[in-house]
């Protein structure tokens, strides 16, 4: 036992000044990182991306994504660009074909896919997909054209099959569940498959 207990032993302070000082020091350190990060980003996103070789003779000629995406509708994931919206709003106007004979087919038809377990049903918009892709990219592989015959499973999608061929690799990633699982089962009274009226 202590003979002369320190003043704080009677009424122990929960926390002294030390944690506060530590926090301030931490903040100062973080601020340096923050400033450093911002400056780096403005300087060059390719300089330290673990991909491009700054010694490459054409390193300086390459367009940087942060320059290219200026004015595009923003997203929170992927390229941080809402590509479908960018196309519809006219922020971009990518070519549909380079071979003059290629037929451009846009299909405005929604599907609702049931059998989604505890999740919301899936609304699949053909229009958004055919604005970018040709029918043959998805049909007959990996998706058969008749509703309910392809055996789509979420596990397979997560392994890069079906929707996962693009979503999670180049289109918005599979972390965005609700963008596909968007139809609440408790309010849906229609039939699965092709929807009578397109909803946009």
């Amino acid at each position: 036992m202590m003979k002369n207990p320190a003043p704080w032993s009677k009424r122990p302070k929960r926390f002294g000044i030390k944690p506060l000082l530590f926090a301030l020091l931490w903040l100062a350190g973080s601020f340096c990182f923050l400033v450093d990060g911002v400056v780096d980003a403005k300087e060059d996103v390719f300089a330290n991306d673990g991909l491009h070789d700054p010694q490459g003779p054409s390193f300086g000629e390459l367009q940087r994504p942060d320059e290219a995406f200026v004015g595009f509708p923003t997203d929170t994931v992927g390229n941080k660009v809402r590509w479908v919206k960018a196309l519809r709003d006219g922020a971009i106007n990518p070519r549909t074909n380079i071979v003059p004979e290629t037929k451009i087919k846009i299909l405005d038809m929604d599907l609702i896919l049931g059998n989604t377990g505890d999740n919301a049903f899936v609304l699949f918009p053909h229009r958004a997909h055919t604005e970018w892709l040709d029918c043959a990219n998805c049909h007959p592989e990996p998706f058969k054209e008749k509703y309910g015959t392809s055996g789509i499973k979420m596990g397979a999608i997560l392994e890069g099959k079906f929707c996962g061929k693009c979503h999670g690799a180049v289109a918005f990633p599979l972390t965005e569940c609700a963008r596909c699982h968007s139809v609440k089962p408790d309010t849906f009274r229609g039939k699965f498959g092709v929807q009578p009226v397109a909803k946009h």
């Binding site: 990518p94 070519r95 549909t96 074909n97 380079i98 071979v99 290629t102 604005e131 970018w132 892709l133 040709d134 043959a136 990219n137 693009c166 180049v170």
Partner: peptide, 9 residues
């Protein structure tokens, strides 16, 4: 370019 130019044509 749209996806289909490279992945189809």
């Amino acid at each position: 370019f749209r996806c289909k130019v490279c992945h189809h044509e």
